[in-house]
Structure formats: C-alpha cells, structure tokens
C-alpha cells in the first residue's frame, strides 16, 4: 500500500543552514495494517506524514502509494490524490471554531460534485462512525477536547479515504478520551482502513490492533 525508499528531507532556513529532518527512511505498509510511528517531538514524525500525504516533497527518495509514485505529482494531482485517498487527522486545534460540527466537514466535501443529499448522507455516516452525531448542530467552540478530536476524525473519513494518517491525535486529550480514541482506531481498522499513527503517547501500547511499530529518532528509523 505505502512504500518509502531512501527518503531524505533537508530543510534550509533563511540563513542557508541545513537541517536534515529525515535520513534514509525506508518502510512498507500493507493494506489494512495499523502502524505506530513512535518518536519524541522534533524527531521528524510530522514531516514523514506530510510526505506520505503529499503535502510536502522529499529532497530525495521514492514514495509509492497504491503503486503510484506520488513524489513527482504536481500540486493539482497531489491534491486530488489527497482528497481521494488520504484522511488526515490533525490536532484538534485545526477546526473552525465558529462553525458547527457538521459544517466543519464541508471543506473535505465541497470540491466534489455532490448533491445536497449525497453530502448530507456522507456527513451523517462519518459523524456516526466517529460517534459525534448527537452534536452535529453544535458549535465546535462549545465542544470538549475529546469531542473536538472525534470531529477531526469524522472530517478525515468523510471522503471514504483508504489511508488514515494521525498526527499526535491524543496530544490534547485526557486519559479517558485517549482510551475512547483507541476504540475509534479499532473501528477504523475493522472498516479495513490502512492506519498510520505518529505519536509519543505511551497509551498506544494498549492498542491491540497494532501490526507494526516504528521508532523514529533524530530523523532515522531504529
């Protein structure tokens, strides 16, 4: 499903200082696998997720998703790929606070040519999967941290993405909500999604459905 070969990423800041965020990363993820990417903050987890989501290009190396090299895609095609294949679970900060829960799913839907009815159906399905259906009309700013995170998940899966990428999903959650999140991951796995979770939260050790664990330290896999 996802295959990385010798992926490097070098950032150059304004003073021409180079910083190597990823060093020679090679990994392979099969369909319906749940993979944990462990690492402290600044270890390059987010960069790796961005590269897989084609939000960023590696400095060198090969990234294949579903047999296609996504590295050479233009922004137009990269976005289309992201829209159709990737569900990106960001931190709960990335929600539009003044809109309601269901309105927050719109950005993922309005680019497709959907009728009102189809849109409503998709929203309903995603919200019920993420177990936030009962708060559909509520403003995001009034939600608790856990509810916000579920809203993010609903947004990530509303387009029936096959691959779900999670970037520090439990960073702002308490223990109870984190455990609830693990349950949701289990559900996604049952829906035959491919899941990649980048985290430094030890709570994921309790997650039973994990197939593989990678440790990322200082930009290289251990």
């Amino acid at each position: 499903m996802i295959q990385l070969q010798n992926v490097n990423k070098v950032f150059t800041d304004t003073n021409h200082n180079n910083f190597q965020a990823l060093k020679d990363i090679s990994l392979a993820i099969s369909p319906n696998e749940c993979v944990l990417l462990h690492g402290s903050s600044g270890s390059g987890k987010t960069t790796l997720l961005h590269i897989i989501a084609s939000l960023m290009k590696p400095s060198s190396g090969l990234v294949e998703v579903k047999g296609e090299n996504i590295v050479s895609l233009s922004d137009y095609h990269a976005s289309a790929y992201r829209r159709s294949t990737i569900g990106y679970v960001t931190q709960s900060f990335y929600l539009l606070d003044n809109l309601s829960v269901e309105e927050n799913l719109l950005p993922a839907l309005v680019l497709e040519s959907l009728s009102e009815k189809e849109m409503a159906q998709k929203i309903k399905k995603a919200l019920s999967l993420a177990n936030i259906e009962h708060k559909a009309k509520q403003k995001v700013s009034t939600l608790s941290g856990g509810e916000k995170q579920r809203c993010i998940i609903a947004r990530a899966i509303v387009n029936d993405a096959e691959i779900v990428l999670c970037d520090e999903p439990t960073a702002n959650l308490d223990k109870k909500n984190s455990l609830f999140f693990l349950g949701l991951i289990q559900n996604l796995k049952n829906l035959r999604k491919t899941i990649l979770i980048a985290t430094h939260d030890p709570i994921f050790e309790k997650l039973e459905c994990v197939d593989k664990v990678y440790n990322l330290e200082g930009g290289s896999l251990e």
């Binding site: 922004d75 992201r82 993922a108």
Partner: peptide, 16 residues
Amino acid sequence: LKEIVILRSTGWSIEQ
C-alpha cells in the same frame, strides 16, 4: 494559517 492548513489537509490544491 489555520484555515489554510485545514484546506490543504482536506485536499485543496494551492490554486484552489
């Protein structure tokens, strides 16, 4: 910035 991150991660192209 937040808005743009949301749009980018939900599959909007830069041009859009």
